[in-house]
Nucleic acid binder design. Structure first.
Length: 582
DNA sequence: GCCGTTTTCGGCCCGACTGTTTTCAGTCG
């Protein structure tokens, strides 16, 4: 899809215009870029079907941007952008990824030091060339180096949320080939890690040659590293590498086990094999020269005296012992989820109407959808004040009347669907909430989250969150640690103390499923479960296609050993409402 | 550059924080 390519260019045009101090246009380009980025429909298809006029129907896209999109689809280039870029040939995407660096800084650094990309920036900062420039002192230079160091830690890794749809697509295409007998993805993708280095796919095939031919010539392949009869390696346009390996049918299970990892998990399983006088490798389990298992993962584990272990647990974090003792958790599964309790509509910073969001939720088989707009502290996100919350309540009541008549579940059962009215309120510096109690009381439930002042000292931050947990009108703490993958570390706070307070007051911690958040992480989920603190998996959707992030949140919950009973939104509408009212 | 239940022209993108200032500019959410 060209959507993301074009969105990226629109973002960059916005940045260039911001450098030129152009008023309002940057905002318009950015808005259009965000909408394009999130759009489920293929922009090229829209254009081919209805021409430039149909592009203008997209919200945020007017005559001028439509013209530029059309130009890109027709010629692969946008002249206006090329001109801007020629004037200042800097890698904007790369540089803005550094926390604290924006368009103005980029412009100044380019003009004074000819800094064009991350490498230039790092060199200049290390040689202390930045301090002393107008507006830059020691502290700024240090912050830049810190920002670069954080980026480098995650370099070469990709978000699961970006990779997974691509991998699913590739698997689907390969599976359709008649030469492919068995197929699965291995590695960190199968373990559903938050970030992925590269993708390993295993197949069983008697005639691998045509499969390999197809694999290296798929749409979206940028480079072919290697092409052979048993292994091929490609780089996709998105930048990640993907390997395809052919294994023997009798070794498929042990190969899958071996390539799924993680490394430490494999070392531990091989040790168990050795303890039994056996040898385990990617070809099978061997007793002396004789191969005794290898066709399926289940039999590999069984011969080791173990229960089969869900890939998400294979991190050598106690799953080996649990498996040997038959004490593995019964992990939550996708079908357990009955609703989503954190999403936004166009009342605040979302792209779809409440009705559209609810419609999608119904099609997903949900019983309920919680609409939780930002509240007034976040003015930039069009946060709602008490008055607009009351207005929204009326609309939700009306929609609920409508859905009660016409609601259905995909299973064919008659089922009730209900929109719940919540809010994603802000925990202010002193721990108070930016919406008054009277308005909070009118809601079905309320979420609270930290959206400002992330650099508070640890104790102060802990007190701030604890005060919100104790607030009788707050039910859920959103994205409790505040980290942004590949961008920002979690904020400092005493998480154990927060868990204890949540437990004491019966409050719920969110597992936010946004690909960049996945917050709580696996370790904290596990700790919460041990402490008996309930969690909720929420998509934090800002449009209808974001609702599917739920899958990532479930994977995260599974990686944290969570079971159905640990997760609030596996419960029915009525029991959730009961809990909220209590 | 986009948009319209106040509008086809004139609004839109606010407030806190940081680091640099001595009254402000840039970034972020």
């Amino acid at each position: 899809m060209k959507n993301q390519e074009i969105a990226q260019i629109l973002y960059e045009i916005g940045y260039f215009l911001e450098m030129e101090e152009v008023k309002f246009k940057p905002f318009a380009y950015q808005k259009a870029a965000i909408i394009l980025d999130d759009m489920a429909k293929d922009i090229e298809a829209i254009y081919k079907q209805g021409g430039q006029k149909s592009l203008e129907k997209i919200p945020g896209v007017g005559k001028n941007i439509a013209k530029k999109i059309a130009e890109y689809i027709e010629t692969g280039k946008i002249g206006y952008y090329e001109k801007l870029k020629a004037k200042m040939p800097v890698k904007i995407e790369e540089l803005t990824a550094v926390e604290g660096i924006g368009p103005k800084t980029i412009k100044s650094l380019y003009e004074h030091l000819d800094i064009k990309d991350l490498q230039d920036l790092k060199k200049a900062a290390e040689k202390h060339k930045i301090r002393g420039l107008p507006g830059f002192q020691k502290k700024t230079e240090e912050n830049i180096l810190q920002g670069i160091a954080f980026l480098e830690k995650s370099r070469g890794r990709f978000l699961l949320g970006d990779i997974l749809p691509q991998v699913k697509e590739i698997l689907k295409k390969l599976k359709a080939l008649k030469e492919v007998k068995q197929i699965n993805v291995a590695g960190s993708t199968r373990r559903m890690k938050e970030t992925i280095g590269d993708v390993d796919i295993l197949i069983v095939s008697k005639k691998p040659q045509p499969v390999m031919d197809f694999f290296v010539s798929m749409q979206g392949v940028e480079k072919i590293w290697a092409k052979g009869n048993t292994r091929s390696s490609i780089r996709m346009k998105q930048g990640f590498d993907c390997d395809l390996r052919v294994v023997r049918e009798k070794s498929y299970g042990s190969a899958l086990q071996y390539f799924t990892g993680c490394k430490e998990h494999n070392i531990a399983t091989r040790k168990i094999a050795i303890g039994k006088g056996l040898k385990l490798n990617e070809y099978g389990i061997f007793q002396g020269q004789k191969m005794i298992a290898g066709k399926t993962e289940k039999e590999v584990y069984r011969i080791l005296g173990m229960d089969w272990i869900e890939p998400e647990l294979r991190e050598n974090q106690g799953e080996i012992k649990a498996s040997l003792e038959g004490k593995l958790p019964k992990l939550i599964i996708y079908r357990n989820i009955k609703g989503d309790l954190h999403c936004h509509s166009n009342w605040s910073d979302g792209n779809n109407t409440i009705e559209e969001m609810a419609g999608t939720a119904i099609r997903m088989g949900y019983q309920y959808l919680g609409i939780t707009e930002h509240t007034k502290f976040l003015k930039i996100d069009n946060g709602l004040d008490e008055k607009r919350l009351a207005q929204q309540r009326k609309e939700i009541n009306n929609l609920n009347k409508k859905f009660q008549v016409s609601s259905f579940l995909p299973t064919g059962q008659a089922g009730k669907f209900q929109i719940l009215h919540g809010a994603e309120t802000n925990i202010l510096n002193n721990g108070s909430i930016d919406i008054n109690d009277k308005a909070l009381k009118e809601l079905d439930y309320a979420i609270a989250g930290i959206h400002s002042n992330f650099k508070m000292p640890k104790q102060q931050m802990t007190e701030r969150i604890i005060k919100a947990i104790k607030n009788p009108y707050i039910h859920i703490i959103a994205h409790p640690t505040g980290r942004i993958l590949q961008k920002r570390d979690r904020y400092e706070c005493d998480f154990e103390k927060i868990l204890r307070t949540a437990k004491e007051f019966g409050k719920i911690l969110e597992i936010n499923a946004q690909p960049r958040r996945l917050d709580l992480n696996d370790q904290y989920i596990r700790r919460a479960k041990e402490m008996g603190v309930k969690m909720v998996i929420n998509s934090d959707a800002h449009n209808i296609s974001h609702l599917k992030f739920m899958e990532l949140g479930i994977a995260q919950a599974r990686r944290g050993w969570a079971e159905k009973k640990d997760i609030l939104n596996t419960q029915s509408l009525s029991s959730i409402l009961k809990l909220f009212h209590r």
